[in-house]
Amino acid sequence: MIITQKKPLEELLQMLQGVTKVAIVGCGNCAAACQTGGEKEIQEMKTLLEERGFQVMATVLPDECCHKMLVRRDTKVLRDCGAEAVVGMACGDGVQTVADNIALPVYPANNTMFLGQVERVGIFHEYCRMCGDCVLGDTGGICPVTQCAKGLVNGPCGGQKNGKCEVSPENDCAWIKIYQRLLLLGQEDKLLKPCRERGYAADAHPRHIDLRGKKK
């Protein structure tokens, strides 16, 4: 899931300077789960803005805010609602997807944090940095690119102290976890595999995937 966090309201109000009529777009998927863009949060935002003198002309909650066709359909109502700006309560992808569909400024109400696991309601952990070359098969299913603060793929640095990472004592050293997990799985020999060469040529942003082939 894409984990988002609310921006401080002050920051959003800065962006909305000079605007009085706004529309709000949320997201029924990740942002709803992150309590940053579901129905409840949209209503809260509406109240907060109205208390500060804004007129909220419309609110929309697409099932997913990163789906262009869906967002196009669901945001049609915004075109003639009189809003001068849109408050996007989704991830960065969702905010841009709304902007792709409407000729109004779309301002983000959230910061997009990471791709993470929902441990339970309101508790999120970063799990994957979407590196494009998944090594989980060699590492007991624990991601060194994400869980190791330095993203090391060839084993640990010397920085752990009592099993905790040098960068943040709140975090376990990923490589000790990987080692223990490989022992548990009887796959310790995977630590002997030759060095992993990681390249970044395929990392030139923005990237695209087209399953339909070349024809557009």
Partner: peptide, 19 residues
């Protein structure tokens, strides 16, 4: 290169040394 002799679990450090 460097190595950390006092390390727990030591086998992990030995693996890294090998690499």
């Amino acid at each position: 290169a460097t190595v950390t002799p006092v390390y727990e679990p030591l086998p992990l450090q030995i693996h890294k040394l090998r690499r």
